[in-house]
Amino acid sequence: MSPASHSADEQMEAFFIGPAANQLFACYHPAQGQANSLGFVLCAPLGQEAIQFHRSLRLLARLLSEAGFPVLRFDFQGCGDSAGDQENWSLKNWEQDVERALQALKEKSGVTSLGLVGVRLGATVALAAAAARGGVQALVSWDALLDGHEFLSEARAQHQDMLANAHVRVDMDPEGEARSELLGFALPDNLVKELEGLRSSDLAASPARQVLVMESFPRFPQAGLHTGLEKLGACVSLQNHENEQLWAWTEDFAKVHIPRKILEAIRAWAQELPS
């Protein structure tokens, strides 16, 4: 790991997890004040959503660390500053990344209880990784993709909308129109196959003892996940903070939306968790 520490009021350490060939970029936010034994790993959404949501995840990390929770956020393989490119995009790879991030959080902080916060596809990956490994105390699933086919349909519709309205000419592509792409990122076939087969009902075990299901995108209701997790034995809360524009693609760098109320709701839920 090659660390880089923040010297400002917001303590943070930027570093890479693992060997260069598949290193993951991570930022560790130590707990401020009395440290909780529970720490959180934040799992970002995919592609353009990850870029538009970077600032919000950093703010969430800050809110949680100020509340006493050590936090680690990271970039999945092929995303952000991590090694690789879209060829590394795979749900299976990313589930392994979650495990690597959890181990890094334990090493950095010494926490004895593990928590996850996942957003959109990051939530889907967090749910699957936590269910497979067990031992996760708390999990926040925010607008998880519960049906991969439905997600792809919605995302492709947004892409078509971008093609219709942005100053772009897909017909000038020297390779023709054969590319599989989604709002600025390639969409590899293997990931499409994985997503087409993705159903939240595939979870075979409860991902965590305590789960907060956060719903902010009305077109993807999360009630089914809430019910499914209860059947698996998790203690589940469902919160709705409607925000239709949160995941809308924007070309304008200055129109990044920070859903502060939702971030504070997550912090409040974490603070009320039984110790």
């Binding site: 971008m162 942005a166 100053h167 772009v168 000419r169 897909v170 000038m172 592509d173 020297p174 390779e175 590319r179 792409e181 709002l183 600025g184 990122f185 390639a186 070309e251 760098f253």
Partner: peptide, 14 residues
């Protein structure tokens, strides 16, 4: 770069 938008959204423009 003809056919490209402000943030080079299409892969061929990237």
């Amino acid at each position: 770069i003809l056919g490209a938008n402000h943030v080079f959204t299409l892969l061929w423009t990237q």
